[in-house]
Nucleic acid binder design. Structure first.
Lengths: 291, 291, 291
DNA sequence: ATAGGTTTTGTCAAGCTTTTGTACAT
DNA sequence: ATGTACAAAAGCTTGACAAAACCTAT
């Protein structure tokens, strides 16, 4: 799997943004890099070296000192498969698909079990469940999936996600209140988002589907969340609750999420927009909260 | 059960509103408090001490003199566990109530765990959860409970029930298909019913909330259930689906359940009525199936 | 399970908002933190240290003085934050291991609960408990584990399994009688097998350790089971009961299970052999029964 | 309630070392 | 490319200090 060494130091520097001098210093001090040599003695780096430099940068970004970042970059190389062996995962994923489509609860749960034993929570959400849900929605629109199939799949997944969620109200990090507005029944994405937040230290209170925003406001004063996240798969439920959202945003930071949330809606409501990928947004929110 | 002494006098004063000086005076004069000491000699109070101070305040509020109030506060401690072991279950049940009403997910789950450890599944459903859900509905109608509280409680319970339900599709007993009609969001009772059935050997497929009856019919031919159970908390969703139900009842035995199902509706739809208690009905259905 | 020490004091300060000086003071005065050191003597903190600082902050927020907050932070030893580096299951599994080895019943039960919420019963048995028991046996033979540890772990697990087993005698499926022969004390595997059967619709009666086969025969006459399973971890108890087993096999299908059961023994006793994995065998038996 | 003394705890300072990115001479 | 140098940033230890919180006794 090793790519041949072929990049000269200048190119590595250009690709990573790390100065030439610094690359040499890292090599000497921490042994992060072990480039080959050209006939004339020039360093020749492989793609793995570039990856390792990138890993260093990630860890430095997390606030680690160079020595520690280097050790992590080197160690992580030993077990470089955090995503799991792609093949087995996609096999399990396919089986999950198949089982859910044919009302085979036992097989679906077995596939889920295997995935749990292979993947981290983030990977499970980002690489399996969220894509699956997304595709399920599309298949439903195309009419490739009946409502019964969609409902069955949702309930199996809801059960598993809520199982993982047990205890997400505990912790010492910031505190988020999660709800779907009235008329909105798609709560799975929001649960996934809650899980991603919790694994980053947040405490979660989940109100779920079809929750009037006014009732959220009632409790905000006492519960004192650091953030309220409102999610909807379509714009309609959000626009219907716009006034309430605006009022709520006056007393607590509000974030809008889900396919129904747009930049414009967020602006009108005085809220933040959580676009796209729940995992990335969970990461971002956590970063903001730290400061 | 004694909590370690850890509160300094200032904090006790802050928590009870009794001045620092007065706390020391009560200790000296009546011995209401017997704090430990830090190395340097600071008083360290336990939570029980705080309770005793609060008791003093109550008695003072009743008009008693300090000396008498103190005696009462001390005595009441002698029998601090009036509930004793009298009824651990109802104690846990009360704690579940209380935790769910105050968004305390962790405590709620802990109480649930204790109940699970004490009761059989049938008993848990029949004696704790179903009464709780019933009462929750009434409290909601009376306005004693906000929508947010109701949603929070529902989602915690839904998570636990779906957790218990995991694997209910497996087995060799009769096979039931469970769904709520369009417009119906109360699925908890139906899940409980599914659990009661499964513990009697049934295989369950659960379609959940808001399921068009026509989509159920689509799958009946292939899945071949021995019975389809349709549940609603009010009559409306059932009457709205009456035609579909009648059609469905032509190809498979259908049972109507939930507070919305009446004898008359069942007759019109050509279905059986599952009145009252899910546990009893699960038992009855199972008996019928056996013969 | 400890994450490697890698954060320098400044980063810890940034992450928690506690000043550098104060962190050092807390370490010196209360021993809340015990960072490693870099070669040059810099403190290097682990994620657990950060958690402990956060716990201090929580307790300080509750109004405790620093010394007391520190003691609590040390005692309660917050559950290690989900690291995100390992997959979900092995994280909880490691915690279970660790807790059982150190007589920490509360943590062990918490880990068990989390696993129950995460996995299917089948997966819990097949991927966590049975491997654990197997390894425990080996560690015991190697002398890596004391008898006390082994007993403690067994009893905690037995308690939980029997908790899950509650009500496994009810239902309408086939009926199995489970027992260990005289001299055999390892009943955990058999309980696990019973659970796997029950989740597939079987009714179970469990006679447990050290049951004379003649007693089993008596029960067979009354209870009329579809199958009797006899399990032993070594061959001896089975050979000792060979005659009785043969007689029993005359009146009811008998299956031998556990590490002590061999093909030959089964043949001599006129019984079936259940080799290997309880889950797979439960599945097989169920399949046979269906037909 | 006041007075006079003690403990606790967060912060600061001085003087010295380690770490690390960059620079420069060979 | 190598090796050495350097300076800013970040740490370390010891010791001290002052405000806040407590103590006892009157």
């Amino acid at each position: 799997m090793n790519s041949a060494p072929r990049l000269r130091i200048g190119e590595v520097s250009r690709r990573t943004g790390v100065s030439v001098d610094l690359l040499r210093a890292w090599e000497k001090r921490y042994g992060v890099l072990s480039p080959g040599r050209s006939e004339g003695g020039f360093r020749l780096y492989s793609d793995e070296d570039v990856d390792r430099v990138r890993a260093m940068q990630v860890h430095l970004g997390e606030g680690l000192a160079a020595a520690q970042a280097a050790r992590l970059a080197l160690e992580s190389e030993v077990r470089p498969a955090p995503t799991g062996s792609a093949d087995l995962v996609s096999q399990d994923r396919a089986e999950l698909d198949q089982a859910l489509a044919s009302f085979a609860e036992v097989q679906a749960n077995a596939a889920f079990d295997r995935l749990l034993g292979t993947l981290t929570l983030d990977a499970l959400l980002a690489e399996v469940l969220l894509p699956y849900l997304h595709e399920l929605g599309e298949a439903w629109e195309r009419g490739d999936v009946t409502i019964a199939q969609e409902h069955f799949a949702s309930n199996v997944i809801r059960g598993r996600l809520l199982g993982l969620a047990r205890g997400w109200g505990a912790g010492i990090g910031p505190y988020a209140l999660l709800a779907c507005p009235p008329g909105e029944l798609h709560d799975l994405g929001l649960i996934a988002f809650g899980l991603a937040l919790h694994s980053r230290g947040w405490r979660i209170t989940f109100l779920g589907q079809d929750t009037p925003i006014s009732t959220v406001a009632e409790h905000v004063r006492i519960l004192q969340p650091d953030c309220v996240v409102v999610s909807a798969a379509e714009a309609r439920p959000l626009t219907d609750s716009l006034d309430d959202l605006r009022r709520l945003a006056g007393s607590v930071p509000v974030a809008l999420a889900g396919a129904g949330a747009t930049q414009e809606l967020a602006r009108e409501a005085g809220a933040t927009l959580l676009s796209g990928d729940p995992i990335a947004e969970a990461e971002r929110l956590t970063g903001e909260q730290k400061t």
